[in-house]
Design a protein around this nucleic acid. Structure first.
Lengths: 118, 118
DNA sequence: GCTATACTGAACCATATGGTACAGTATAGC
DNA sequence: GCTATACTGTACCATATGGTTCAGTATAGC
């Protein structure tokens, strides 16, 4: 069964629910970046961007490392495997459920035909 | 490229970021349920559960239909296909990025060996 | 050592979220 | 028609979110 009470999912799906943060992940997928660079790219104050990075970091989707004055942001060590698995499992249940409904509809149609031919 | 500025994702990932709502989706995957039944199962007031159902409905993950006094909640017509696709695409980029890093590490190791043998 | 850059922290703001209570409306069933 | 049930709507509350400003601190580079 799909596990739903999981703070990890709260954090990661929550992190993904914001367009800026999805954008940051995309950016980091092509190259590491400093907070300043990200703030400029997404037209936001440094402080604002730092908060977003904090959210991503707490969700384990981003790592950061400070060298000198510059904090460099990189992709985290986890790559949404578990979240992908949750969704896939859900999709499985979802499609089973709809197949089931299809079967019921089919059954009803057959019964109808049987009645007609009486 | 992964598309990040998408209100659909805001809504669906936001909906998935709450344990109760993930639980409701699970429940509905096995059987339709009324608001009252869901509220009881998740130990919450009717009003509270109705809000959660509203969030899921706005995200397109749940449909509801009122017959008589009872509003029945069912799985929505979309089954997180797009969200699964977003995550898969991201995971692709993520693993490419890590392969790239692996290559760089390999290269550095080779250079080191070359220096050692001098 | 001075100055510019890069971040950090605290305070603030508006709005959203996750919950409640309580009063109302509509329907099911005797 | 009365009563219980099932929802609906509004108001309220505490806390979180997404942003800002402003005042620090620390480092890079001349």
């Amino acid at each position: 069964m799909v596990q739903y009470s999981n703070p990890q999912y709260d954090a990661s799906f929550g992190a993904l629910s914001d367009a800026t943060r999805r954008g940051v992940l995309e950016q980091l997928a092509s190259a590491d970046a400093s907070i300043t660079a990200l703030a400029e790219k997404f037209q936001m104050t440094l402080t604002g961007m730092k908060k977003h990075v904090g959210v991503l970091e707490r969700a384990g989707l981003v790592r950061t490392e400070k060298v000198g004055r510059v904090r460099t942001c990189k992709l985290g060590l986890r790559g949404l495997e578990q979240e992908a698995a949750w969704i896939e499992e859900y999709r499985q249940l979802w499609s089973e459920r709809f197949e089931e409904l299809d079967n019921i509809v089919e059954e009803l149609k057959l019964k109808e035909k049987a009645n007609e031919s009486k």
